[in-house]
Design a protein around this nucleic acid. Structure first.
Lengths: 341, 341
DNA sequence: CTGAAAGCGCTAACAT
DNA sequence: ATGTTAGCGCTTTCAG
């Protein structure tokens, strides 16, 4: 529990010098710095974050707000953000807003605003204009991951382009009866993500001159179960069974693969299946998918915050930074069976 | 950015009274409290956590240290802890020590000890005696989840009893050739968990007078892939194929189910499979398992910390609190096929 | 390059 | 029940 004063005494300097030597701010002769460092090490001294924060106004802590923790995507984003923050000497305080609306308000009122964090990363969260405004008023940098937030710097993939790419892969292989398992548009959690992915699918079809067929759409709920149930419906159709399925997430795509197997269909011979994500399990299931990189997304969010926190270089003028994605072809897609209609 | 002084002026009282009214410590007439609350609300006042922490020595923040984030068990523990902490007005700072040893030391040296947290929850982490000692020296309450930490209050399931129960379920159904997919004992991550689970398995066999057969053990790595590979080996045996498999985790058990399907075997008719966890996907796969409750474990860890942080009732003298577990029978286990040996 | 001194915004005795 | 008065442990002008 050594304090700065003790270190100062031991090094034969003043507390001010210790502070300068340890923080790197201000000039200290290297000889003095040595002595201070040694004294601090001997005493096992560590600055009190509260005292330091009170004096500087900086907490060296960022809040990460997510709607779920136990879903692959969110966990990975947090993981990426955590390691990037750690490397910068920042802590990560986690707010899981999955719960009730009350819990959500509570976080805003009593925590984020409690001057506990220097900045916030909002993952796939639709903040109200009021909430954004308050953060703005407190001059807290904020970055959104996963969708455009009004007036906020965000990182997001182009959901329309991603699903167009996935659909085009199937079309390129020769498929024309392509089903889509998407989200329930009435439960628009993340920024119209389900809608955007469906739009990309429809765009690709229409660009290829393939008429869209509403019976080829089934909502899932982004879980394996949901994808399984939807695929059962799609693949159990007595006639005009789709030759390919594009699922809006890998978990749903895996559910679809299992549904096909349950029905005795071979993937990809009888039906090609593609997802989005490059989930941990995608490789195991041989799933063709469009990869997005959530850990990278977490890291990039931190980078953005750091440039806002330590303004040095001019900031890019565009609020939204597009995120990378790639088609990863594995063994769940192939050309449609020529012997079938 | 209103400060306590402004609130005091607006309410016509002193800063001390505002502090008392807002924190609930000390007596304030209800009329005064009303005025203070209103003034604070009008000004959008929130206490500065750093100032408050500096004055009280309490951060209202607990550190959670985990080895992985993106595994069902850990995510769930964190989720449980987070919501319990939030309810108590505490924040959760996350330290993911999955990375390098350097990262791990860095966390200890510069973060946990930086007086940033009031207490720490260590999930499935083997801390060195030295690390435990340092936390102790700083008088930081600590609770371990998932295994006994030397001299630390811990919550853990009885791994031996759990796997004995799983194995006994199989024996009770009439199985005698029971294989086990466990962890690689040479990579003892979590507190000899793989070893303990194997011990429980062996105990159950021996209690039933069934000789153990080393060829019926295969290491997995607690992933679906690992379970799949191990089960392939086990079930592909040309003779004396096991009639049942006990996997030390649900993810491995699910991998085993998929392996059985790949081989054209029916679960449970040709082979019964049981796991441990009650993973999110267990129900979907109809997996019989021994449930443990990680969210509950996170919540309980918080409860323990709270009683240490606010000593009121006498503490239990036993350092270890056993955690509940239950056999959940679904459709992946049945009696062995009588027509086979 | 270093030291002295004045806070940062709150809380907790101690008075009243 | 409320006000006064010291700090909590650091950082940062301002001098020297």
């Amino acid at each position: 529990m050594a304090g700065i004063e003790e270190v100062a005494r031991r090094a034969g300097v003043s507390a001010a010098t210790v502070s300068r030597a340890l923080s790197g701010r201000g000039h200290v002769s290297s000889a003095t710095r040595e002595r201070v460092l040694e004294a601090a090490a001997d005493l096992g001294y560590v600055v009190s974050s509260s005292a330091s924060a009170l004096a500087t106004g900086r907490m060296r802590n960022v809040g990460v707000v997510i709607p779920f923790l136990n879903r692959w995507f969110y966990g990975a984003v947090v993981e990426g953000a955590e390691s990037a923050l750690l490397a910068q000497g920042y802590d990560l305080t986690l707010y899981n807003l999955g719960g009730s609306v009350d819990e959500r308000r509570s976080v805003f009122e009593h925590f984020l605003l409690r001057k506990r964090v220097d900045a916030v990363i909002a993952v796939s969260l639709e903040l109200t204009a009021d909430e954004v405004q308050r953060l703005h008023d407190m001059r807290k940098p904020m970055v959104g991951v996963g969708g455009p937030l009004p007036g906020v710097r965000t990182l997001s993939i182009d959901d329309i382009a991603v699903s167009r790419l996935a659909t085009e892969h199937l079309i390129g292989l020769g498929h024309r009866r392509i089903a889509h398992i998407g989200g329930d548009p009435s439960i628009e959690m993340d920024f119209h993500l389900p809608t955007n992915r469906r739009i990309g699918y429809l765009e690709a079809l229409s660009a290829a001159g393939i008429p869209s067929d509403p019976t080829l759409f089934h909502p899932g709920d982004f879980t394996m179960q949901g994808g399984h149930a939807a695929a059962k419906q799609l693949l159990g159709a007595p006639r005009d069974r789709p030759t390919a399925i594009f699922a809006a997430s890998d978990e749903m795509a895996i559910g679809a693969i299992l549904a096909a197997r349950d029905l005795g269909l071979d993937v990809p011979r009888d039906v090609s299946i593609i997802g989005i994500d490059d989930h941990d399990l995608a490789e195991f299931f041989g799933l063709t998918t469009v990869a997005q990189y959530p850990m990278l997304q977490g890291r990039m969010a931190v980078d953005v915050l750091m440039t806002e926190l330590h303004p040095a270089h001019p900031q890019p003028d565009s609020l939204n930074t597009p995120l990378p994605y790639d088609l990863v072809v594995r063994s769940s897609t192939t050309r449609p069976d020529a012997s079938r209609g």
